[in-house]
Simulated scan of single mutants.
Amino acid sequence: MPAPLPHEHLPSAPALVVQSDDITDGDRLNDLHVFNDWGMTGQNLSPALRWSGAPDGTRSYAVTCFDPDAPTGSGFWHWVLFDIPSSVTELPTGAGTGPEFKGLPQGAVHARNDYNTKEYGGAAPPPGDPHRYVFTVHALSVDSLGVDSDTSPAAVGFNITANTLARGHIIAHYGV
């Protein structure tokens, strides 16, 4: 039985519509979004995402990517981006990829992912069954989560959950 998805443990919230020109719900990630290390040869670019349907009172957004199937006992955080201004409703391909962060909105903050970098880190599962990559956009009731880029993904996630007005996701998979 596959590991539960992260949103299955969270309080219910209205749905945001999340779309992408780069990834499709239920499909395989292409090499554009695969890590370029740990034996992988992808381009390690964050996917383009856009969202709509945020409720009144949305003051900021957060974007996360989580692999619940990682053999860690606690999953693997690939991307934790927060304090995205409420006026922003899309990120271009590579916005979460350093060192340029092209298209990353001013004020947005990357927390350290489980690769120990403050940016998007692509898929890099061990050989075996494909892993699921849950790209989630969270509409938040605060302008800022009040945490910084050195805050752990779990603590950022706690603050995201405490302030979520709505969320939506795309789940893609990748295996070697």
Score class of each variant (00 low, 15 high):
2 P>K: 09
3 A>W: 04
6 P>G: 11
6 P>A: 08
6 P>R: 10
7 H>N: 13
7 H>L: 13
7 H>E: 15
7 H>I: 14
11 P>V: 09
12 S>L: 12
15 A>I: 05
15 A>H: 08
16 L>A: 00
16 L>N: 00
17 V>I: 13
19 Q>M: 11
25 D>Q: 10
25 D>P: 03
25 D>C: 10
29 L>G: 05
29 L>R: 05
30 N>K: 15
32 L>E: 15
32 L>P: 11
34 V>A: 09
35 F>H: 14
37 D>K: 11
38 W>L: 15
38 W>H: 15
38 W>G: 14
39 G>F: 06
39 G>K: 07
41 T>F: 15
42 G>F: 06
43 Q>P: 11
44 N>H: 06
44 N>G: 06
45 L>Q: 11
45 L>A: 11
46 S>I: 08
47 P>I: 09
47 P>R: 05
50 R>I: 03
51 W>M: 02
52 S>A: 07
54 A>E: 10
55 P>A: 05
59 R>Q: 08
59 R>G: 01
65 C>G: 07
67 D>S: 05
67 D>M: 01
69 D>R: 00
71 P>T: 05
73 G>W: 04
78 H>C: 12
79 W>R: 09
80 V>G: 03
84 I>E: 01
88 V>P: 00
89 T>Q: 08
97 T>S: 09
99 P>G: 09
99 P>A: 08
99 P>Q: 06
101 F>M: 11
102 K>I: 15
103 G>W: 06
103 G>N: 07
106 Q>G: 14
106 Q>S: 14
109 V>W: 05
111 A>E: 07
113 N>C: 06
114 D>K: 02
116 N>Q: 15
116 N>H: 14
117 T>P: 04
118 K>W: 15
120 Y>R: 04
122 G>M: 10
122 G>V: 09
130 P>L: 01
131 H>Y: 03
133 Y>F: 12
134 V>C: 10
134 V>M: 05
135 F>L: 12
143 D>C: 03
143 D>Y: 11
144 S>H: 14
145 L>Y: 04
145 L>S: 04
154 A>N: 15
155 A>N: 12
155 A>W: 12
158 F>D: 15
161 T>D: 12
166 A>T: 00
167 R>M: 04
167 R>T: 04
168 G>A: 04
169 H>K: 13
169 H>N: 14
170 I>R: 03
173 H>N: 13
174 Y>G: 06
174 Y>T: 07
175 G>A: 04
175 G>W: 01
